[in-house]
Nucleic acid binder design. Structure first.
Lengths: 93, 93
DNA sequence: CCACCTACTTGACGAATGTCGAAAGGGTTG
DNA sequence: CAACCCTTTCGACATTCGTCAAGTAGGTGG
């Protein structure tokens, strides 16, 4: 793996390498669409903290959020996760 | 994903989420067996720094090292990487 | 046996980065 | 406007990265 490629992959892996973000992602994968106000109590953290984590996942391209009315609904990008899995083990898929 | 499971996965992902460790792993996957003295110049860091990184990869179960004479030879555990890929995307494999 | 060298690991340190929540701000609805 | 949802800024605290210095392990020559 090249130096630049390693840096890009590491940045995206860092976004996944946190217990809170893994649980948020798991909740999003299970429920299709969830808003911050529902996620915060599920992981027992403040909405501000959850917003931080969602921002990191969004920046890494694993989720996206859409505002509808008062709430912001987040959904997971399953293809981005699949691509990440393939980088870790190309022989896997 | 449960709280404890998320923590365990996060710890192992953190071991992967670093550009230096990704490059070290890539070198090990390419060459079957490499010693610290060959890895250090390949990533342009001191042997001490490389040893720290190899220790983290070893602790996470992605590599193992064996001393033969003066050198310590490391090799990657491909199955551990496959298992990690499957955690990220269960539908992948 | 001893000194000496190479290969590698470990511990301690400063610099950089990440985590979390309180407070403040922007949008949206009633 | 008041209430609600969400994000952003700021500050405290913890974790991580790379290096030096010291220590261990194995090999070599006097």
């Amino acid at each position: 793996m090249g130096e630049d490629a390693a840096l890009e992959v590491a940045v995206r892996l860092k976004a996944l390498a946190d217990p809170v973000r893994l649980r948020l992602l798991s909740l999003l994968l299970a429920s299709e669409e969830v808003c911050t106000c529902d996620l915060a109590p599920a992981v027992d953290l403040t909405e501000a903290t959850v917003s931080h984590h969602l921002g990191q996942l969004k920046k890494a391209g694993f989720i996206s959020g859409e505002r509808r009315g008062m709430n912001v609904y987040y959904r997971a990008h399953r293809d981005a996760l699949g691509a990440m899995a393939q980088v870790i083990d190309p022989a896997c898929c």
